[in-house]
């Protein structure tokens, strides 16, 4: 009996090590942001391994630093905003957008006494106002996009003041040096908690489902290993389902990974729902974002960005998951969302 047990154990161990060794490895970069949490969920719940990919996560302090690592072949894939990959691609880097990580998430903060003046559902409240922002941040680009969509000539009617960091924007709002400031999560929650400032609007109210934080990978690696990237995306699709159906555990996973106040994470993720963690590539959103950057005059040279968006891998990954659980409502909603946005 002992012999049989030993044999079974040996076979199990061998099979296990063979399984682990066979998995293709992906080095994944991210910036510490609550809405990037699908990576932590997929890792902690074992979805990456179950889908057949071995993932190591690497945290970066800034999008530029992460993109430089991606370019230097130190990463296989990463999520570093939308602006940074677009700037790198426009300068000749061969990267491909294969998915997304975050939709929405930008807010306009102000001092409590200015809240009444800036409330309402019309962007015209910002006409003639002084707005602090970090140049080329998602908030900067999409807010200008929203103003343009609303028919407001923001170059003439709004006074934008650029700051070097989001902390400087919060400080300027606090001091009253600007009327309002565009900030990204979790800075508006921190500004409310630590400085008594108020969120006047989430940009989502004026510009639904705008893109933030895309998943990019070197084009040559995507072409050489499409199946690996497809598996990676399938794991994130399953992580999305988990995030939609298991809020308490998701908050704990995010909190452990990011070491940010659990209340802030819960509030942003499930109470105020300021951003959605969603792996959809949002092709139309990327193209809009590029156009907004060009409209703002930040980059004057045009470039066919569409050549650097691959939606097929995500669709294949989604189909593979749907095939396994065809009646699952979350996956069905993802299919509908994909059709609308790609």
């Amino acid at each position: 009996m002992k012999r049989i047990f030993a044999l079974v154990l040996m076979i199990a161990l061998l099979a296990g090590s063979a399984y682990g060794a066979a998995l293709p490895k992906l080095r994944v970069g991210y910036v510490p942001e609550p809405a990037h949490g699908l990576y932590f969920v997929a890792k902690e719940k074992g979805f990456f391994k179950e889908e057949g990919v071995d993932v190591d996560l690497y945290q970066f302090g800034s999008a530029a630093e992460g993109m430089a690592a991606l370019k230097a072949d130190k990463l296989d894939v990463g999520t570093f905003g939308t602006t940074a990959p677009l700037v790198f691609i426009s300068k000749g880097s061969e990267f491909t957008f294969i998915g997304g990580m975050m939709i929405g998430g930008q807010a306009i903060i102000t001092r409590p006494e200015r809240l009444g003046e800036l409330s309402g559902k019309d962007l015209k409240v910002y006409k003639g106002k002084k707005i602090g922002l970090v140049k080329l941040s998602t908030g900067d680009v999409v807010f200008k996009g929203a103003l343009k969509k609303a028919g407001i000539d923001y170059k003439k009617d709004v006074n934008f003041v650029e700051f070097g960091s989001v902390a400087a924007v919060v400080e300027a709002v606090k001091k009253g040096a600007v009327d309002a400031g565009l900030v990204f999560p979790p800075h508006f929650s921190l500004a409310e908690k630590n400085h008594g400032l108020k969120v006047a609007h989430y940009i989502e109210e004026f510009y639904p489902d705008y893109t933030c934080c895309r998943i990019v990978a070197p084009t040559n690696l995507v072409k050489a290993n499409p199946d690996t990237y497809k598996r990676f995306l399938a794991a994130l699709i399953r992580a999305y389902r988990f995030y939609k159906t298991n809020p308490d555990e998701t908050v704990k996973i995010y909190t452990r990974a990011l070491k940010i106040d659990e209340d802030i994470i819960r509030n942003e993720t499930y109470v105020k729902r300021v951003a959605e963690s969603n792996p959809d590539p949002l092709r139309k959103g990327i193209l809009d974002f590029w156009q907004h950057i060009r409209d703002a005059g930040y980059i004057t040279q045009d470039y066919p960005i569409d050549q650097h968006i691959n939606t097929a891998l995500y669709k294949q990954a989604l189909d593979s998951v749907v095939k396994r659980e065809p009646k699952d409502k979350v996956y069905q909603q993802m299919l509908t969302f994909y059709k609308k946005n790609n």
Binding site: A64, F80, G81, K135, D140, L190
Partner: peptide, 16 residues
């Protein structure tokens, strides 16, 4: 700074 095309910093630990 107005003229430069620099990807912005991000996130709570966003020190380059």
């Amino acid at each position: 700074a107005d003229k430069a095309v620099c990807p912005p910093d991000c996130c709570p630990t966003g020190k380059k």
